[in-house]
Amino acid sequence: MLAQQILNGLVVGGVYSLFALGFSLVFGIHKILNLAHGAVLMTGAFIGLYSVLLGLPLPVAMILAILGGGLVSVFIEFTAFRPLRNTGESEFGAIISSIGANLIIISIAQKISNTEILRFPFETFPIVIFQIAGIRVSLLQMFMAVMALALMAALMYYLMRTRHGRQVRAVAGNERAAVLLGVNPNIIYFQTFFISGALAGASGVLIGLAFGSIHFMMGEPFLLAAFAICILGGMGSIVGAMVAGLLFGMIQTLSVAYLPTGLTDAIIYSTIFVILIVRPNGLFGKAAAGVLRSQR
């Protein structure tokens, strides 16, 4: 029973990681809190759902959701963040303008979906259950785990092993120094927001498949979770977001399984609270406070 719950928690946590990673990436590289990130997840779920309803196969729907999420995220960067950056008023202004972008996207989704709670048609994802050493593992869980791992591995490879990834890390470290070395920061912003949105789009479809409920407000609890995960992992830390996401999913699943459901959020956030007392910068955070304080 415990092993079963831990497995379930890890799978859910993997999706949390995937989603929180995009949020953390944007903050870690550009010091922007993108509060419209939840709306991107919802957009991904919507694109995936409507593609399936239109008769497209699930893999195609998944790819469309990833691309759509990336494009919406880039659109948010173009409309909500770039104009502020050019006026040099980016730090607080960006928080407000991303809340605005969030509201607009949610309102559009509400219109499209007629304020209904939707779900993927039955057996969009084939229901296959394996029994491995007494633990039930569904094909969907395997798919979610593989998808989360593959996307995170691809991201790590991109950041750590490619020329473009090196430029991204340079901008994260010191945007001005990177510009003096000939790095065009606008291209880096484009890439970061696209990747961040693509991860959110993929998470949206996975969450829609796993939890069976897709609606215009579905991104909000995940945005809050992503924020908590990033603080727990250390703001801007990629490894931190991954580990904290898994931890978050585990605590959530275990407390739902063994404790009264009303306590779930209380358990999650008090656990985070206790961890932060011991490690104020999060599990993998270095001078996270310094990042926030530094004037750009």
Binding site: R166, V179, L181
Partner: peptide, 29 residues
């Protein structure tokens, strides 16, 4: 960045190396 790409390169005050990247990565950058 276009100016830098045209070969007019500045070594900025305080060096501004990228501390989290390796020495080789800084050079490759």
């Amino acid at each position: 960045w276009k100016i830098s790409q045209s070969g007019l390169l500045q070594v900025p005050e305080g060096r501004q190396i990228l501390p989290e990247l390796t020495v080789l990565e800084n050079l490759q950058l």
